[in-house]
Design a protein around this nucleic acid. Structure first.
Lengths: 252, 252
DNA sequence: CCGACGGTTCGGCGCCCACCGAAGGATCGC
DNA sequence: GCGATCCTTCGGTGGGCGCCGAACCGTCGG
């Protein structure tokens, strides 16, 4: 009886078309913003916000607030597995429309596809995290007391032709949590300038119209020379890559 | 989006306290009448009848009409496994402070349930998990690559008089998450046959009308002989003997 | 300072649905 | 035939909740 209440409450979280749509979308293992989820489900932002509240309160989703964004993801792998199981098993799974339910395994594959992309105005994905790590390894960035550029790092940027100018309101360097890698990459003015330079110098080029980018041979050499960073042959691009991104949030 | 509708519809079947109560009750693998379910859930007969309609229409339950009775049971083992999984995993463990007003009788009932019960058509609870572990320990079941019956396990079952027959659609052996022990017990055809044999051979007998069972002296001897499994002084329906439950033996 | 933008809160609307009691079968035992 | 039992159908009621737009707030970048 008591168990029935709990079971009903849990099922109730999924028992709404919009919330179910959220959860299915989040099965890709990434974190989506409220706005992205709203657009995906076709509801107003306010509605999506309220649904997000309920899903978080019910323990189905976890959230992380970053700046003016609110990122939502499945609370844990157990929840993901459970949703997958239910979604795969419910009778109408054979919907015939050829839209199979996304599995976590498939999502991992897709992760490799989008191994490099832009996030706002800086680099993200595997590439972004790798660059961040390499800069720490080379002593250009320190993370001992928060994340900051070292004098050597400033010099390195200057040698690339990047002038950070006078300190303004925007942080010079900031960590930005990468939701495919679940680790931080570099944002802020420096992150933005690194991205700008990488594009300008032909280290990376955009793939299609989305946020995905790929590393050119020139870029591979430059990254190896400049940062000792060896990029594996990972980045296979495919039309699916851009499609895998949450709609919206592509700016600039 | 299409999938979201289906998922929401399916979850919606469980997203009601009364219907969830039905499904949980039906996890004992028996067929219940509408009247029994109504009384169990504490709703009017008419209400129960309507809920039964919805659950049948949604593919969760199957029905069989016999004379003036309408028997309801879970549609298939897959549905049973799904419900059990969801019930075991839903995060109502921290369901809030005040809830459970438990009577002593209810507590005893629950202890019996926790000790040994049927789950759909196989054994669950402490007993179910212990049997599963013992079968692994005796080399009858392997869990190296998923859970499977070994040749020795097949032979053991044969010696009990259990013939698994030809492989059909249903898995021969499957793990089923136990919601009191939070560990896996054995389901599938083999799990079902073990339960059937245990009841037929008088190893266990049902307590009252619910899912709870208790191990008989014959069963104790048989489990010790066959599996080297020593069960403490059996679960019983008498309040005084509740202490006999192998409290120290729980978990591992 | 400003405007742009993502998100939240609030009031309100409308619909869905869980529930009940009463009336109406259907089936059993006699 | 009769009454008893089990169930279904139907009308009505109440509450919950999904949805929206408008107002508001905090953050970002200039």
């Amino acid at each position: 009886m008591d168990a029935a209440v709990g079971l009903a409450a849990w099922a109730g979280l999924l028992a709404d078309r919009t919330r179910a749509s959220f959860c299915l979308a989040l099965l890709d293992g990434r974190a989506w913003t409220v706005g992205e989820l709203a657009k995906h489900a076709g509801v107003a932002l306010s509605t999506a916000s309220e649904h997000a509240d309920r899903l978080v309160a019910g323990g189905m989703l976890a959230q992380r607030r970053q700046g003016r964004h609110r990122y939502l993801e499945l609370a844990n792998p157990q929840v993901a597995a459970l949703i997958e199981t239910v979604a795969a098993a419910h009778p109408s799974a054979r919907n015939g429309t050829g839209t199979p339910v996304t599995t976590l395994a498939a999502a991992h594959k897709r992760r490799n596809l989008a191994f490099a992309r832009t996030c706002y105005d800086h680099l993200a994905g595997y590439l972004g995290v790798a660059i961040a790590d390499a800069m720490v390894g080379n002593g250009f960035v320190t993370r001992t007391h928060g994340t900051a550029l070292t004098p050597r790092g400033v010099a390195w940027l200057g040698q690339l032709g990047v002038d950070l100018g006078k300190p303004g309101r925007r942080a010079v360097l900031r960590d930005c949590l990468d939701w495919t890698e679940r680790r931080s990459h570099l944002a802020g003015v420096a992150g933005s300038e690194i991205c700008r330079h990488a594009l300008a110098a032909g280290w990376v080029v955009r793939i299609g119209s989305g946020r995905a980018v790929k590393v050119t041979p020139v870029g591979e050499r430059a990254l190896a020379d400049q940062l000792g960073l060896v990029i594996g042959a990972a980045g296979t691009d495919s039309p699916g890559a851009a499609h895998a991104m949450p709609a919206g949030a592509r700016r600039r």
